[in-house]
Design a protein around this nucleic acid. Sequence first.
DNA 1: AATAGCCTCAACCGCAACTGC
DNA 2: AGCAGTTGCGGTTGAGGCTAT
Length: 326
Amino acid sequence: MGRPPCCDKIGVKKGPWTPEEDIILVSYIQEHGPGNWRAVPTNTGLLRCSKSCRLRWTNYLRPGIKRGNFTEHEEKMIIHLQALLGNRWAAIASYLPQRTDNDIKNYWNTHLKKKLKKLQGNDEQNQDGNSVSESIPKGQWERRLQTDIHMAKQALCEALSLDKWNTNLPDSKPFPVDLPQTKPIQTSTYASSTENIARLLQNWTKKSPNSSSSESTTQNSFNNPSLGTSSSPSEGTICATTPEGFDSFMGFNSSNSDVSQSEGEPKFDAANFTPETGILQGESKTNLDIQMPLTLLEKWLFDDASAQGQEGYLMDMSLGETADLF
DNA sequence: AATAGCCTCAACCGCAACTGC
DNA sequence: AGCAGTTGCGGTTGAGGCTAT
């Protein structure tokens, strides 16, 4: 009937992961791909529950995770996505492929919430950070639906674009880890030492036998976890977090975005969209057509990326109250 | 130098959603 | 349809680092 006991088992280890455990876990995932988490503790001998293994992988070990300071652009995205979607961190994370939902959630709770509160306090508005979304009672289900559609579409696009990525990224590594350039800001504990994992991952790519022949499978399995073991529709979220694939496909890079040149990207006619109706109109018409241009939100964000530095770019949104934060 | 309070974030918990039978 | 097992998600916690005194 009830859920099986997971983390309250005797002998199940809790707390911070050790390097050894990380190695075991990543080795296993390299071999079998992510998924089937239930079997991971059994097959690896890790004294961790399946949940803990999955969390460790998705929030920390997964290749391509960007750590450290959030850029201003990322901040903007989070604030507005939060306003749009509420505390749906996984959905928000799907727009920030290098960030995990946990990271975004933490960043929101520790930084942005305060920032908003402060700024809104200056405006003599007694609202906490969450109330931004609460101030828009209408269409919550619509936004939810929109996000789900977006994730599904994104997953589909990625699945169909793998070949393109591979050709676009001739020197892409099986583990596209950009970790060394994103040093953790402060902590020296292992849990924050991404270099360890980067080294780990690089070693695996080297020692991986017949890497040339099996590269595509391995790479796909890592770059796009949903392909290997997809069993859940919400895998789109994970799929969407594929870092390089996402970047190359979307022409998006949070730190250095150049959207205007996105070659081969479907053309988007922003004029046909209005903030309130564009999303749903576009989505309902297209029925997940992968030739469908970017959603309004994506377009909107890309426009921002290309015109970074311009203020007031978000005022068109119905949630304009956050637009003047920066 | 000591330490108290604050801050950050990795990890945990519990519920919801999903899937297969 | 209903149950059991699995996975995903969001809220919360607490250990450890940082900062002010």
